[in-house]
Design a protein around this nucleic acid. Sequence first.
DNA 1: CCCTCAAATTTGTATGATGACCTTATTACC
DNA 2: GGTAATAAGGTCATCATACAAATTTGAGGG
Lengths: 234, 234
Amino acid sequence: MFDKVSAPAMSDTVAQQLLKQIEIGSFAATGKLPTEAVLAQQFGVSRTVIREAISRLKNEGVVEPRQGSGVFVKEHGAIRPLRIDYAEAIEPSSMPHLLAVRRAIEAEVAAEAARRCTDRDIAEIDAALANIDEAAAAGRDGVAEDVAFHRKIAAVTGNPYFIKTLNFLNQYLEAGVAVTRRNEATRDDFSRQVRDEHAAIVDAIRARDPMAARNAALTHLYNAERRLSQAGIC
Amino acid sequence: MFDKVSAPAMSDTVAQQLLKQIEIGSFAATGKLPTEAVLAQQFGVSRTVIREAISRLKNEGVVEPRQGSGVFVKEHGAIRPLRIDYAEAIEPSSMPHLLAVRRAIEAEVAAEAARRCTDRDIAEIDAALANIDEAAAAGRDGVAEDVAFHRKIAAVTGNPYFIKTLNFLNQYLEAGVAVTRRNEATRDDFSRQVRDEHAAIVDAIRARDPMAARNAALTHLYNAERRLSQAGIC
DNA sequence: CCCTCAAATTTGTATGATGACCTTATTACC
DNA sequence: GGTAATAAGGTCATCATACAAATTTGAGGG
């Protein structure tokens, strides 16, 4: 019924572990993976599972199997895009990891925004903040306004990669965020807490205090994670 | 250059054709694909090939196989990977922006590492740090060792997305890092400064002090940016 | 009508075999 | 001795079969 419970899937875990080893550089010496038979023995699974795992890594452009020769790790001849497997990303266990990345970005975004923001930027951020309250007052969940608020702050940094990265992460976090906000809407203490945290970020930016802004953003996202876990998301 | 000639690879073509049929909506009626056995017969291949093809579509989030039930097409649309145009990324003006993203990640990585590291992790990080000195003593630039050091710290966080993101960023920053390290090697004050900054990060992690680790990492990367600009990179 | 439970269906995994292709070592020839 | 042809072994690609695990289905009993 609920897609979460269904699939630990051996080939998935093997692919994950292999990818991790590759990224760490375990096979950097030879530039190629052990044979399928050896891997099967190491992982304690059949060659079938190993082959499916390798097939995925091939599909992702991480490795290139050559018939008769071996499975070679592809050295980035081409720039490899940052891609996160959807099935893996929506696993509850992945949520804290994705949130950690977002936390890292948002913290630096806040600090950078505090350094570079103009008076006009601050006014726009204030407006975005007010929009969240309006949405709440209107009975909407305010997910879009919340996203817009954070996006506005990212925009004032003038760093397009912050925005890109956050947009990318939001693809995976969106569902969780929506649930949290719905959850927050039903609890006054949560709702007020989020408001205060947002206000703290804006205040620090307004004061042009990068350190305070960073800490405020960190606090906000640590608490967001806590709220998520209390909501049973992760 | 012409690596394509060798392997059309049956599972690839099957996956392509299946994807096309799915996009056309051939299975929209039932919402699920025919059984693997039927597909094998239709395509005139073995079930192995069908399974590999389906495995890829699953990996791409197009379908979701459920044991005992069937292979269902996921109405969920395309997740867009994070791509950065290479020509844009290597422009000097982009370098500070990419560095800012890296700074964000590294700071959180250091904090997280300080929280979760075991004694053994610390020993490995120490070893990675020593490797940099060894490389320097041997007259090498130590780029690989420097990268390995940061990667090791990222590894102890247990967060695969940190590693992925850093690897992704390194694709673009690699060149700049190499130049900086060569530049550092020629200036004792730079070299010593980098050593001290690295040591500060490790010390904070050893002390299990997330805040200090974050600040040490931030300092390191702010200074790295300064050194880059003094070297005329950006 | 509903509940239980067993059979049928379907994907997941394991195993063995064969072919295609590559690498390496050996051999034969000059 | 050097070089090219050849043989041997290793490795991935595919196939075929069998069994396990999970789900769906349907029959039977209350």
